[in-house]
Computed example of a mutant assay.
Amino acid sequence: MIEKINLNNILFLDIETVPEYNSYLGMDEETKKLWEHKTQYQRKDEVTAEDFYERAGIWAEFGKIITISVGYFTNKADIRNFRVTSFWGEEKKILQDFSNLLNNHFNQPQHVLCGHNAKEFDIPFMARRMIINSVPLPDKLNLFGKKPWEVPHLDTLELWKFGDFKHFTSLKLLTKVLGVPSPKDDIDGSEVAHVFYIENDIDRIITYCEKDVIAVAQIFLRFRREDLLIDDEIIHV
């Protein structure tokens, strides 16, 4: 039961990703062919591999992480605080810094990671990019040989499914139906690559990513029938 989980033991997270290069032309010829083959069933007949490259950020083999945002409760007695921070910069350093956070502060058996669709996207994407960047996998991301009940991950999308495997609900929709302030009041995921490569505005992306983390925490509180966080309880560090 999620009501029995100590909120202080949960690390809420979200990542933002973009295509590895600012355009299709940045890839070498072999990678272009691999991209064309990888996406042949996702593309419509009239959409070329080059035109489809704007979506490359959803594949770890062709994208990269530009920020990881995390949030965690530091509740004491009747005082509730939610601290939010982000890692950005060169991808390998982002991954190393995030790994250090897990290894140093969220490495005990009671600690769990939580995101929206994180089991399907965020967590495997981070693990794959760590391997690509030769960053050792922290225990919380190393799932080799673990049984399903040993995986220390929570997913608000999975919790909302209630066993309905064909059901998908976006974070924006779930916040709407649960009465949680929407994190999508500026940009959405489809615009991140443009903001990163064209506008060069990483601060805007970080703000967007941190809002997603806060929204996931708010959804989790709603699942537990607890009061939502107010602005004074949210601390950006």
Rank of each mutant, 00 (worst) to 15 (best):
M1P: 13
E3M: 11
K4P: 00
N8R: 04
I10H: 02
I10R: 07
I15F: 04
E16M: 02
Y21F: 14
D28E: 02
D28H: 10
T31S: 10
K33S: 04
H37M: 11
H37Q: 11
R43Y: 06
E46C: 08
V47H: 09
A49V: 14
D51Q: 15
F52W: 14
G63K: 04
G63N: 03
K64E: 10
K64T: 13
I66S: 05
I66L: 01
S69C: 14
S69D: 07
V70T: 11
V70K: 10
G71S: 10
N75K: 14
A77P: 00
I79N: 13
R80I: 15
T85I: 08
K92C: 06
K93T: 15
I94C: 09
Q96D: 05
D97Q: 13
F98C: 14
G115Y: 04
M126W: 05
A127Y: 02
A127W: 02
A127V: 11
I131W: 01
I132F: 13
N133C: 12
V135Q: 02
V135T: 02
L141I: 00
N142A: 11
F144M: 10
F144V: 12
W149K: 06
W149F: 12
H153L: 12
W160L: 09
K161P: 08
D164Y: 08
D164K: 10
K166L: 09
K166G: 05
H167F: 14
S170W: 08
K172V: 03
T175Q: 04
G179V: 12
S182C: 07
S182G: 10
K184I: 13
I187N: 07
D188A: 06
V192R: 01
V192I: 15
V192A: 05
A193I: 03
A193E: 12
F196T: 09
F196W: 14
Y197H: 09
Y197V: 10
I202G: 03
I205Q: 13
I205R: 12
I205T: 13
Y208D: 01
E210P: 06
V213H: 05
V216Q: 00
I219L: 14
R222P: 07
R222V: 12
L229R: 03
I235E: 01
I235W: 04
I235D: 02
